[in-house]
Design a protein around this nucleic acid. Structure first.
Lengths: 142, 142
DNA sequence: GTTGACCTTCCCATGGTTGGAAGGCGCATA
DNA sequence: TATGCGCCTTCCAACCATGGGAAGGTCAAC
């Protein structure tokens, strides 16, 4: 299997397969005499593992860890679970951050007429953050 | 006001203030004879606007737009609202994506014993995506 | 033998931010 | 006046994951 065929078979672009190889996420592929990378079922399986892990938002670093655990037939499932739980916590933190933004923005947007007049609570909010920002600056010179 | 003082007054790092200037988000600062950037109340206000917008997740490009509308005293609030609503939609899409990941991962983690045995539904899921991926590949050669 | 689709490596760009190096100011203190 | 410290300046590089493209080699079909 060529890199292009492997790409179509896994949904990972050829560019990314080369990249994953270059950073050591996957071992260097066997080459033909002409220098073409060759992929067998084992490599395809690993690439699909990576594809799935990426689709769940795992970073390359976390995938390094997961792949190592996958290869280790004697791993403790607790270790895998720990990686997953850590990632879940990161995702939830990110979600909470984004939801905070949405809540604020939605409130502001709800208060905005959205007509051809210039009065706009959204811009007023963005422009009026002087109080919260300047006060602590004064009373908090470490 | 120096760039360092402006940074402390706004919560934006000096590095980022220079960066915002370099990409044209803010106009080039007035300089002292020695080449030091000088910031007055107007610039501080603008930087605080930017700080607030960034904290709400607006991109630099969106901030370009918002700053232009802010400067235009005759803007239609509808235009501001449109920028905000577009951004809200982006945030919601991102949240939905992350929530999908969390849901899948949480289910897998719930099924994982998390002990010292090697059996792990999480790794099994990551490794078992062959069916969904390879079948459509065969019946879908365009 | 030519063509077209593939492969190779290499460099560059993205976005937003941080880090560091090398050299120039400004001010306080000895 | 000299020294030192902290600030400023510019430039260059890195992060993460991905895409784009150029220049050149290879393979297979016709």
């Amino acid at each position: 299997m060529n890199i292009g065929q492997a790409a179509r078979a896994t949904g990972i672009s050829a560019k990314m397969i080369r990249y994953y190889e270059s950073i050591g996420l996957i071992p260097a592929a066997v080459r033909t005499e002409a220098g073409y990378r060759v992929y067998g079922p084992t490599e395809i399986h690993m690439l699909r593992f990576i594809k799935r892990a990426r689709s769940l938002g795992f970073s390359v670093e976390q995938m390094q860890h997961l792949l190592a655990l996958w290869r280790d037939r004697d791993r403790a499932s607790a270790e895998v679970k720990a990686v997953a739980l850590e990632h879940i916590a990161e995702l939830r933190a990110k979600i909470a951050e984004l939801e905070g933004m949405v809540q604020t923005l939605q409130q502001l947007a709800d208060c905005c007429h959205g007509d051809d007049r210039p009065d706009c609570p959204i811009l007023e909010d963005l422009a009026a953050s002087d109080e919260e920002l300047s006060r602590p600056e004064i009373k908090d010179p470490i």
